[in-house]
Nucleic acid binder design. Structure first.
Lengths: 214, 214
DNA sequence: TCGACGCTAGACCGTTCTGTCTAAATAGGC
DNA sequence: GCCTATTTAGACAGAACGGTCTAGCGTCGA
């Protein structure tokens, strides 16, 4: 048994690091097993000792991408307490991501573009999307929106738009545009929420009057 | 010389139709030459007689996608005269696209996800993106925005977001969300434009007073 | 000391890939 | 009918693909 704390990285870890780099920057189908093991500096047998096959490696690659990204977003959100600021923080984290020279879009978006509908990529993407939607629905609920689902849908679309625009135009500026858009949507949602509250209170007072007089 | 109008489709045309279907639905790298010619019902020699290679075929596939889509968008815009309605029409065309059962996202987005930075896919995508930006900048200018570039950036991001969301969540609903967002952005831009006009007029009247009194 | 575990080097297999080539058939314009 | 352009079927090449297998090496816990 090797201890988890060891000086030199394990072969499996080095494979995952190499695969992450290559798969993300060049696409999954474009990168062969041989290139992964060459970059990792391991023997072919090590790959098939640690992974059931390429699909298994791809699955771990996407799973790691998911967990690392969700942790990063969670950290960005956790830096704020104000519900509105917590939402906008997501787009700031995106901005930092876009600014990285290695940025090449969403790993899941890129993977399903070259994968079959029933592939491991599709499954991982489905899981990832569930996380995205849950994230924004929770945030939209916390901000006290009159229609949280509608707000969440808008925020998800803005999120996706930022990711896609930043990739295709190779500019981190998309994050600022997304943030501005999110602010606009939040302002609008707050206005709608206030109006709904006013309406409700008016209705209550009418009922009260009615009850009192009746 | 064969006339362009002939009963039976040319081998090249049939190859292009088959390639479009396969490349779009399964990804470029995932689809081999053999599958294309099998679907087209032509000999392998016909493919290499009409195209320099797979890259050339890919290039024509993307070029055709670009021209067909830009024509479709142009037609949607042309159905309206009001500048605001012309902008919103783009998202309605997207809605019709998303509703098609074969929809699988943006062909360019999918292609660069699996391609090298200096590939024909990247080149075609660059051309496509220039068209997207020009389209929205022209529309934003026509609507009389105070800052057309800023408005165009927002509309592009909403466009990209709709395309990405619709693909990843497999729902045409994204087009409606995008349209609502676009309306919000346009309302805001109009407000900003009016305010800017008021400010300018105030400034002018101040200068006039100054000139008269001085 | 020994055996299990993690790993290595590399040969090897069958398949699939893009692309070439040959040789013959089928048009259509003149 | 002739000439050229187009198309056919299929063998073939060379490379890359995912994956298997063997033989052996080091390390570390029991």
């Amino acid at each position: 048994m090797t201890k988890p704390e060891q000086r030199r990285r394990t072969a499996k870890q080095r494979i995952l690091v190499a695969a992450d780099d290559l798969f993300y920057s060049e696409g999954i189908r474009s990168v062969g097993i041989d290139r992964v093991i060459a970059k990792a500096g391991v023997a072919k047998g090590s790959l098939y000792y640690s992974f059931a096959g390429k699909d298994d490696l791809v699955c771990e690659y996407l799973t790691n991408r998911h967990s690392k990204w969700s942790e990063r977003v969670a950290a960005g959100i956790a830096a704020h307490t104000d519900p509105r600021a917590r939402i906008l923080a997501v787009y700031d984290v995106l901005g930092a991501l876009f600014a990285e020279p290695t940025y090449r879009g969403c790993a899941f978006m890129n993977s399903i573009g070259e994968a079959a509908p029933d592939s491991v990529e599709a499954q991982a993407t489905k899981t990832f999307r569930t996380w995205v939607h849950t994230l924004f629905l929770d945030l939209a609920t916390d901000v006290g929106a009159a229609e949280p689902q509608q707000l969440a849908d808008a925020l998800v679309l803005i999120y996706d738009g930022a990711v896609a625009t930043a990739q295709m135009d190779a500019t981190p500026e998309a994050a600022r545009t997304a943030r501005r858009l999110a602010e606009l949507v939040l302002d609008n949602a707050r206005r709608a929420s206030v109006e709904a509250t006013v309406k409700r209170e008016r209705l209550i007072s009418v009922i009260d009057e009615d009850t009192t007089s009746g």
